[in-house]
Nucleic acid binder design. Structure first.
Length: 851
RNA sequence: GCGGACGUGGCGGAAUGGUAGACGCUGCGGACUUAAAAUCCGUUGGCCGUAUGGCCGUGGGGGUUCAAGUCCCCCCGCCCGCACCA
C-alpha cells in the first residue's frame, strides 16, 4: 500500500471536479433548488482562518444538500471596494484597483486549494463597473421612489487630511492618522429611507425562524419600536412650547421635571446666556453619545430657571432642565421626568432633590420610601381620573384625553435612523448625480451609466482623489447642458453587499443587475453563513434592499435569507517573551521538560489566554501553511471537530495534527480492510458482529444527516469517528461478513464526503467505483436496521444507578423488572428494604423505590 | 445601566427529565524499533480501597420529581450587543 500523498491526491480530485464542472449549476425546474451563501470576503491579501471556517461550513452544507438531490447554488465573490485599499495605496504607492485585483488573484488561489464546491463561473467582484453600474441604476430607482434623499448631517472632519473620519478613526478627539483635533462639520449627504420600512423590517423578523434568536433580538432592539404619546408643554412666561415623547404616558401625574437634550434648539433658546451653560454643554459633548455611555454616566443637568406647565396638571409648575442623558436623535429630544418609575429620572431627582411621586402601584406594594425606581405594572394612584385603572388601561385613557384637548397624539417611534450612504472617498461606487448651478441636483441619465471611477489618480495631496482629479468631475448638465460637476462622494460599501447575493444569480447580465425570473427560481437564500459581527448592519441593509428592490419591481421576494448561521471566532493562545514582546506560534516550541521556550535562543515564554487571532498579538496562523503542510481535508476536519460552529474555535497545533493523523488512519484502514469484491451480492445471513456493525452503519447515515442539518458539525465528525472505530474493532466471524464490512466502509466514505471530500473521493475510487462521489446521492438508511435488537439500560435504587442490564429491545416491563431485581448489585443495594414501587421506562431506565 | 447568551474532567466538548463525561486533544503505562519518528494496545473526573466495590461530583444555595447538567426561584462569575469600523 502506498502512503497517502495528500498534495498529489487532493490536487488530482480538485482538477477533476473543475474539468467536469461538477459544481456549476443553472436553473433546473425539475429539481428543488438550495441556495447556500457564505458572506463574501474582503480581499485583504491572504485568507485567514476565519475564512477557512466560514467556507468549510458552507461547503459541508453545499455538498450534503447536493447529495440529497438539491440543485445547489454555492457562489463566491469579492467585496472589493473599501477603505483598506486606499490606505494600502497610500502606504505602498500603488493604486487601490491594482492592490485589490492582486489580492483577489492570490486569495482565489488559496480558496481553490480548499477544494470548495463552488460555482466559480459566477464569481463577481464589486469593484468592477460591470457590477456597480447596476447599483447606480438601483439608486436612481430608489431616488424616483423617494427612498433616497439628501440632507445635512454632522460628520467628523479631519482638517489635515481633508477627509471624513469614522467614529473609530477618532482617538481622543483627534484624527487617528494626522493627530489633528477633529472638527464637527455639516455636510450635505445622501440617505436611504430605511425608516420607511421600519415596521415591515420589524414585523418580518417573525418569519425568520431559521435565524439565531440572538440576531433577531439584536435587530428588534436596533429598530427599537416604541409606542407612546407625543404632546406639548407650555413654558411659563414664553411663547414657545416644548414637545415631549413618552412611552409611559400613564405616569404623567408622577412627573416632577422636564429635561431637554443638550443640543435641543430650546436648550440654547432658554439658557444660552445663563452662566455655566457653555461649560455644561462642553461637558456633555466630551462624554460621547452612545446609549451605553449615557446609561452608565452620572446624570447631570443644568437648570434653565424656566418652568413648564401642562393643561392636565393645573396649577403645577415643573423645572426645565437640560440633561446629559437625553438624546436629541430619539423621540423629540425632550422628556418629562418621573423619578418614581424610571431609573435614570430617579437618579437625576435624587441629585437635584426633586420630588418622587409614585403613581403606578404594583400589587402588594406601597412604594413608600423608594430606594430605586419601580418599573413594574400596577394600578394607578394619585392620578385623578386615572385612579384605580391598571396602568396599561391608563395609557390608553390619557392618550384619549390629551388628543381630545388637541394637545398631542398617540404615536409610534423607532430608534432606527435613515442610512447615510455618502462617503467622501475614492474607492467606492460613485453616486450617479450631477450638481448643476441652475438645475440643482440632477440624476445621471441611465444611458450614461456606469459612472466609472477614474484609474489615473494619485494620493499626492490630502483629500478625496475624485475631488482633486483634473477632469473627472467636470461634465455638462444632462438637463440644461451647462458646465456642471459630478457628485464626488461614493457609496458606503455596505451598498455592494446589500444585493450581491442577487448578482450571483445572473452574474454576466449587462442589461440589468439580475433577471427577475432567475431570482424567482433561486431566491431566497436557504442558508446564509457568516460572522455574527454582521448581525445588525449588513443583514438589516440587505433585508431593506430586498424590500426596496421588490417595490421597484426588481423581484418578488420579501426576505433575502430564510436561514442564517453565525459562526464563532477563531482564537489562539498568545505568547510573550521575557520582555513582553508578542511571539508568533511558529516562533515557540516545547523543550524536553515540556516548558515553552523560543525556538531561537530557548528563552522562557509566557503562555497567555486564547483570544481572537489578531496581528497585534501575533497569535495568528497562516492557513496557507496549514494547507501546504497538512492538506485541505485535515484543515477542514479540524475546523469542524470539537467546537460547535457557533462558538469560538481554539486553534491548536495539536488539534490540526490530530486531524491529519486521522486522515491517514482512515486511508490505511480502508486500504487494509478485508472487503467483499465490488458489486458482490448481499449475504443472506450475518453473524452477530455483522448485525451490530450494520446497525451502527445505518444509524450513522441518519444521524450524520440530522447533525449536519442542525449545524452540529462537531457531532457529525464524532459520528464519523464512531463508525470508523466500529469498523476498526470489527471481528469477522464469517466470510459473508465481508459484505457487511464493505457496506460499513462505503457508508463511511459517503458520509465523510461533505467534510473531507478529497479523501472521500480517493477512497470511493479505491473501493472500485467509476463514478464521482461528489455526484453521488446520500446513502439511504434501512429503517429495519436503525433499532438495535438489544438495549443496555441503567437500574437505579432510589434514583442511584446500581447496575446495568441488557435486554431485548422489545422486552416488556415485567421482563425488565425481573431482570433488574435479579441483579446482585441491586439485591445488595435493596438490603432487604421494602420495595414501594418500581418505575420502568422501556428502553430507558428501571428505578426501584424503597424505604 | 438596559438587553441577550453562557458556566459540565487537565483542555475542546457530548447527554428527547432516565447509565453524566459520547467523540476528541493532552498526559501516563506498554508493544514494535539499535534508537527515534510513525503506528498499535491499555489507561486517563476526584477521593478511599489489594479488590468485588464505595463515597463525592455538571459555578453556589434552595425547590419540584421515583429520577435534575437538563425544569422553577435566589445568588455568583464570565462573555456579547447597545448607531453609522467594514
Amino acid at each position: 500500500m502506498s502512503r497517502y500523498n495528500i498534495r498529489e491526491i487532493e490536487e488530482k480530485w480538485r482538477k477533476l471536479w473543475v474539468e467536469r464542472r461538477c459544481f456549476e449549476v443553472s436553473e433546473d425546474l425539475s429539481k428543488e433548488k438550495y441556495y447556500v451563501l457564505a458572506m463574501l470576503p474582503y480581499p485583504s491579501g491572504r485568507i485567514h482562518v476565519g475564512h477557512v471556517r466560514n467556507y468549510t461550513l458552507s461547503d459541508v452544507v453545499a455538498r450534503y444538500r447536493r447529495a440529497q438531490g438539491y440543485n445547489v447554488l454555492n457562489p463566491m465573490g469579492w467585496d472589493a471596494l473599501g477603505l483598506p485599499a486606499e490606505n494600502a495605496a497610500m502606504e505602498r504607492n500603488t493604486l487601490p484597483a491594482d492592490w485589490t485585483n492582486n489580492n483577489i488573484a492570490q486569495m482565489k488561489e488559496q480558496l481553490l486549494s480548499m477544494g470548495l464546491a463552488i460555482d466559480w463561473s459566477r464569481e463577481i467582484s464589486t469593484c468592477e463597473p460591470e457590477y456597480y453600474k447596476h447599483e447606480q441604476k438601483m439608486f436612481l430607482d430608489f431616488y424616483k421612489k423617494n427612498l433616497a434623499y439628501r440632507k445635512e448631517s454632522i460628520v467628523n472632519w479631519d482638517p489635515v487630511e481633508n477627509t471624513v473620519l469614522a467614529n473609530e478613526q477618532v482617538v481622543d478627539g483627534k484624527g487617528w492618522r494626522s493627530g489633528a483635533p477633529v472638527e464637527r462639520r455639516k455636510l450635505n449627504q445622501w440617505f436611504l429611507k430605511i425608516t420607511a420600512y421600519a415596521e415591515e423590517l420589524l414585523e418580518d423578523i417573525k418569519k425568520l425562524e431559521r435565524w439565531p434568536e440572538k440576531v433577531r433580538i439584536m435587530q428588534e432592539n436596533w429598530i427599537g419600536k416604541s409606542q407612546g404619546l407625543q404632546f406639548n408643554w407650555n413654558i411659563a412666561g414664553r411663547e414657545e412650547i416644548i414637545e415631549v415623547f413618552t412611552t409611559r404616558p400613564d405616569t404623567l401625574f408622577g412627573a416632577s421635571f422636564i429635561a431637554l437634550a443638550p443640543d435641543h434648539p430650546m436648550s440654547v433658546a432658554l439658557a444660552a446666556n445663563k452662566e455655566g451653560f457653555d461649560a455644561f454643554i462642553k461637558q456633555c459633548q466630551t462624554m460621547g453619545t452612545s446609549e451605553e455611555v449615557l446609561a452608565q454616566a452620572e446624570k447631570i443637568g443644568f437648570d434653565t430657571g424656566y418652568k413648564a406647565t401642562h393643561p392636565l396638571l393645573p396649577g403645577k409648575e415643573f423645572p426645565i432642565y437640560i440633561a446629559n442623558f437625553i438624546l436629541m436623535g430619539y423621540g423629540t429630544g425632550a422628556i418629562f421626568g418621573v423619578p418614581a418609575h424610571d431609573p435614570r429620572d430617579f437618579e437625576f431627582a435624587k441629585k437635584y432633590d426633586l420630588p418622587v411621586c409614585p403613581v403606578v402601584i404594583p400589587q402588594g406594594q406601597n412604594l413608600e420610601n423608594l430606594v430605586e425606581a419601580s418599573v413594574e405594572p400596577g394600578f394607578m394612584r394619585n392620578s385623578e381620573f386615572l385612579d384605580g385603572l391598571d396602568n396599561n388601561a391608563a395609557k390608553i385613557e390619557i392618550i384619549k384625553r390629551v388628543e381630545a384637548l388637541g394637545n398631542g397624539f398617540g404615536t409610534t417611534q423607532y430608534r432606527l435612523r435613515d442610512w447615510g450612504v455618502s462617503r467622501q472617498r475614492y474607492w467606492g461606487c460613485p453616486v450617479p448625480f450631477i450638481h448643476c448651478e441652475v438645475c440643482g441636483i440632477v440624476p445621471v441619465p441611465e444611458k450614461s451609466l456606469p459612472v466609472s471611477l477614474p484609474m489615473d489618480i494619485n494620493y499626492d495631496a490630502p483629500g478625496n482623489p475624485l475631488d482633486r482629479h483634473p477632469t473627472w468631475k467636470h461634465v455638462d448638465c444632462p438637463s440644461c447642458g451647462r458646465a456642471a460637476q459630478r457628485e464626488t462622494d461614493t457609496f458606503d460599501t455596505f451598498f455592494e453587499s446589500s444585493w450581491y447575493f442577487l448578482r450571483y444569480l445572473d452574474p454576466h447580465n449587462d442589461q440589468t443587475g439580475f433577471d427577475k425570473k432567475k431570482s424567482g427560481y433561486w431566491m431566497a437564500v436557504d442558508q446564509y453563513i457568516g460572522g455574527v459581527e454582521h448581525a445588525v448592519l449588513h443583514l438589516l441593509y440587505a433585508r431593506f434592499f430586498t424590500k426596496a428592490l421588490r417595490d421597484c419591481g426588481y423581484l418578488e421576494c420579501d426576505e433575502p435569507f430564510t436561514g442564517l448561521f453565525t459562526q464563532g471566532m477563531v482564537t489562539h493562545e498568545t505568547y510573550q517573551d521575557e520582555k513582553g514582546q508578542w511571539l508568533y506560534p511558529n516562533e515557540i516550541d516545547k523543550d524536553e521538560t515540556g516548558k515553552v521556550v523560543t525556538i531561537e535562543g530557548g528563552k522562557a515564554v509566557t503562555v497567555g489566554a486564547s483570544v481572537k487571532m489578531s496581528k497585534s498579538k501575533r497569535n495568528t496562523v497562516d492557513p496557507q501553511d496549514i494547507l501546504d503542510t497538512y492538506g485541505a481535508d485535515a484543515a477542514r476536519l479540524f475546523i469542524l471537530s470539537d467546537s460547535p460552529p457557533e462558538r469560538d474555535l481554539e486553534w491548536s497545533e495539536a488539534g490540526i495534527e490530530g486531524a491529519w493523523r486521522y486522515i491517514n488512519k482512515l486511508y490505511r484502514m480502508v486500504n487494509e480492510a478485508d472487503l467483499s469484491p465490488p458489486g458482490s451480492p448481499k449475504s443472506a445471513i450475518f453473524s452477530a458482529n455483522a448485525v451490530k456493525l450494520r446497525h451502527i452503519t445505518h444509524k450513522t447515515i441518519t444521524e450524520i444527516g440530522s447533525e449536519i442539518e442542525a449545524f452540529h458539525m462537531n457531532k457529525a465528525v464524532a459520528r464519523i469517528r464512531e463508525l470508523s472505530n466500529a469498523i476498526g474493532d470489527f471481528k469477522m466471524q464469517d466470510q459473508s461478513d465481508q459484505w457487511a464490512l464493505r457496506e460499513a466502509v462505503e457508508t463511511l466514505v459517503c458520509c465523510m464526503n461533505p467534510m473531507i471530500p478529497h479523501l472521500a473521493e480517493e477512497l470511493w475510487h479505491f473501493l472500485g467505483h467509476k463514478t464521482i462521489l461528489a455526484e453521488e446521492p446520500w446513502p439511504v438508511a434501512d429503517d429495519c436496521l436503525l433499532e438495535a435488537n438489544t438495549v443496555t439500560i441503567g437500574v437505579q435504587v432510589n434514583g442511584k444507578v446500581r447496575a446495568t442490564i441488557t435486554l431485548p429491545a422489545n422486552a416488556d416491563q415485567k421482563t425488565a423488572e425481573e431482570k433488574a431485581l435479579a441483579e446482585p448489585g441491586i439485591q445488595k443495594a435493596l438490603d432487604g428494604k421494602k420495595i414501594r414501587k418500581i418505575i420502568v421506562v422501556p428502553g430507558r431506565i428501571v428505578n426501584v423505590v424503597v424505604g
